[in-house]
Amino acid sequence: MTTTAQANQDERVAEVGGLRKFLSRPELGAFGGAILVWLFFAIVAPVGFLSLRGTANYLEVSAQIGILAVAVALLMIGGEFDLSIGSLVALSGAATAILTTQYGLPLYVSAIIALIFALLAGMLNGYLVVRTKLPSFIITLAGLFVYRGLTIAMTRLITGRTQVGGLDDMPGYGLMESLFALRIPIGEANFRISILWWFLFAGIATFILLRTQIGNWIFGLGGDETAARNVGVPVDRLKIGLFMTTAFSAWLVSTITVIQVKSADTLRGDQFEFIAIIAVVIGGTLLTGGYGSAIGAVFGALIFGMVRQGLVFWGVDADWFQVFMGAMLIVAVLVNNFIRKRAEVANR
């Protein structure tokens, strides 16, 4: 930065571009981390982990968290949290299953009604945050318990149990299966269609974030809410919209799991909200908002899936998984802070 009066020295733009631009991307840490994790398991458990079947396996696990993480990334860049999405996964799954098994609606109709429930819950989260001005952490922590409790109580009240199964015999299952649980054979392995949903969702989120006006608003909202409001960003509507996006992602994940396992379980989605936040933070998004990426969240979720399934292929007891994820979170935050500081200096 200099203060010469000469203008239009366009050739100097290229000088800063290229490698440095790449190095200053928020998802760089997660990208590097994903490669390291992949290499690690490729070395310690090459047989299962490197096979197509192994790949399909950890991608499927990653996809569920990944879909949530992409939406949570948008919300966290906007400076808010959503701890209620795990419970919303259970809520909308139970709603879909009950509406079909108890009231005879075709599965796709039930799923659409469940989507409306989820969106209303997201809207309520957002509305409460905007109106009460309480931290979203508190509002959605309450949501975590309220939605989960509501799911368990209502399911037991209506069906007498906490699980609702046998969905594959219900009307509309075939259509729903081809949309949400399709197996796509590649080589000896079957890749689930949820992986495509994940990539599609991430693509849309990235497009919105980087290429549209709304994306600019999201960064502004998370960076400085008052400043954003002063220049005319519709802050309240934007926030509510972001909470509805995370609720939508919870519905999508719930529909995928309900159709894949042919049943709903009131305990499903437990801790998903925290794992999604971990994936987003590993992906380089700042906890304080204003900075981050949806692509980073994709890599964060990929790391989650590779570690979870990699440990199985390695033969390590799965009990160690949580230890690994927790430690990973700390390392990721430290690495990302380091990279971001360096990137800012490099850009000078």
Partner: peptide
């Protein structure tokens, strides 16, 4: 103090709220 959002780019800050389309 409320002039700019530090982590956003100059161009994004410049057009925040009145984005060119």
């Amino acid at each position: 103090d409320l002039a700019m959002i530090p982590l956003m780019s100059i161009a994004r800050n410049f057009f925040l709220g009145s984005e060119p389309k």
